[in-house]
């Protein structure tokens, strides 16, 4: 399935940070949604600012426009404010990108668990993300840190409890 670019992607001004405040807000909103949907399409969980500049999202070779590093940082900062991104270092060169927030992932997992009548059962984290049962589910292949965060979110809601086992971590759903 090929990624469907939004119309803005072929609009040259999209790649220049707009000085007009209102215009810039709309532009940034479009960038946020493009970044998230692209990462989701490619199942990306971490991004490097320098590498990102060369990725097709921020570099449209067809119209020969690329977003500057400063502008990318502005977009990422905007994503951080919305809770979709976390910086991994102080210099803000690498970041975790969460195209679904942990609560949303948790909700998806819990829906699957209850749909299959497996409430009160115990799973290992590996089973959830890479087990045969979850194949075809959206959270299949989810990176462990992300999975852990989603389960932690469920735990605070009182729907799950994370247990430490000999060879790693497990979870029990309520």
């Amino acid at each position: 399935m090929s990624f469907e670019w939004p119309w803005q992607y072929n609009f040259p001004p999209f790649f220049t940070l707009q000085p007009n405040v209102d215009t810039r807000q709309k532009q940034l909103a479009a960038w946020c949604s493009l970044t998230l949907s692209y990462c989701r399409h490619r199942k990306l969980y971490t991004l490097d600012v320098m590498e990102a500049q060369e990725s097709p999202v921020f570099n449209n070779k067809k119209i020969e426009r690329k977003l500057s590093v400063e502008a990318i940082q502005v977009v990422f900062e905007e994503l951080r404010k919305k809770g979709n991104l976390e910086w991994m270092d102080k210099n803000k060169t690498r970041c975790l990108i969460m195209w679904r927030r942990p609560e949303e992932w948790g909700k998806l997992i819990y829906q699957w668990v209850s749909r299959n009548g497996m409430v009160n059962s115990v799973f290992t984290l590996y089973e959830l993300s890479n087990g045969d049962d979850t194949e075809g589910e959206e959270f299949h292949g989810l990176e462990e840190w992300m999975l852990l965060r989603s389960l932690q979110a469920l735990q605070t809601e009182g729907k799950a409890e994370i247990i430490t086992m000999d060879d790693g971590k497990g979870v029990k759903f309520f």
């Binding site: 001004p13 220049t16 707009q18 000085p19 532009q27 426009r65």
Partner: peptide, 12 residues
């Protein structure tokens, strides 16, 4: 016109 939000720029 840009300031009034009718135009936007492409600085390349």
């Amino acid at each position: 016109a840009e300031k009034m939000g009718h135009l936007c720029r492409d600085d390349s």
